[in-house]
């Protein structure tokens, strides 16, 4: 137990990095994922096909491979970026596919009458999507989005294998330095993740009650 308290600053620094990775990637994945979902329901066949291909490829790629592509491959393209940026890119590209699938299922769940009414008053596809469909779609997919972002938070740990000193990386270091304290170190870091997961779940439940619409 004292190992945890003595190294609290190390662990907290690790978790700060975990939260930073998760937060930046979450924003990126939400934007990219929504764009991909819009492409998948658009009237333009080329965009539909491109969105579908993206989701199919990204969902069937192991996250570790995605990290390898961005961490080892990006410098080969002549793009110089810090480890943090490359990790965020890998997480964003990976998670966006899951966000896109959730948002698309939400778009499909919006009542047909809403869309028909929007079209009847002469809205274009973009207007229909932006003003009528997406605001309702996001509300209905808050629970699956919460689980996507929880998975993202846990997935940031893969960055530990590629030299990012986030929480799981610190756990590895501490358990090597203090082999006798393996259990407290493991449980301590696991507890940190459980708190993060609980915070995300509570935040989304709060959003749900806040944004609930009476039908």
């Amino acid at each position: 137990m004292s190992v945890l308290l003595d190294n609290l600053d190390v662990l907290l620094a690790g978790f700060r990095l975990t939260v930073a990775l998760a937060a930046v990637s979450a924003v990126g994945a939400l934007l990219l994922g929504t764009l991909i979902a819009a492409m998948r329901v658009s009237p333009v066949p080329a965009l539909r096909a491109a969105g579908g291909t993206y989701v199919n490829l990204a969902r069937n790629t192991p996250l570790t491979l995605m990290f390898a592509i961005f961490v080892f491959g990006l410098p080969e393209l002549g793009i110089q970026a810090s480890f943090f940026v490359r990790a965020v890119l890998a997480l964003t590209v990976y998670t966006a596919a899951f966000v896109a699938e959730s948002v698309r299922s939400g778009i499909n769940a919006v009542q047909a009458g809403q869309v028909e009414a929007a079209r009847a008053v002469g809205m274009t596809f973009g207007q229909t999507l932006r003003l009528v469909v997406l605001p309702q779609a996001f509300r209905s997919v808050l629970p699956p989005l919460a689980s996507v972002f929880i998975a993202l938070t846990k997935n940031t740990s893969v960055a530990a294998g590629f030299g990012i000193t986030e929480a799981v990386f610190r756990m590895g270091g501490l358990s090597r330095d203090f082999p006798t304290a393996l259990f407290p170190v493991f449980l301590g870091v696991a507890f940190g993740f459980i708190i993060l997961v609980a915070v995300i779940a509570l935040f989304f439940r709060f959003l749900e009650t806040r944004l609930a619409v009476v039908r």
Binding site: F186, V189, F193
Partner: peptide
């Protein structure tokens, strides 16, 4: 609930180092 909320890599490290 514990194992669902814990990253797989954390479990792997725990078993590997320990």
């Amino acid at each position: 609930e514990f194992f669902r909320a814990t990253p797989v890599l954390l479990l792997i490290f725990f078993l590997f180092f320990g």
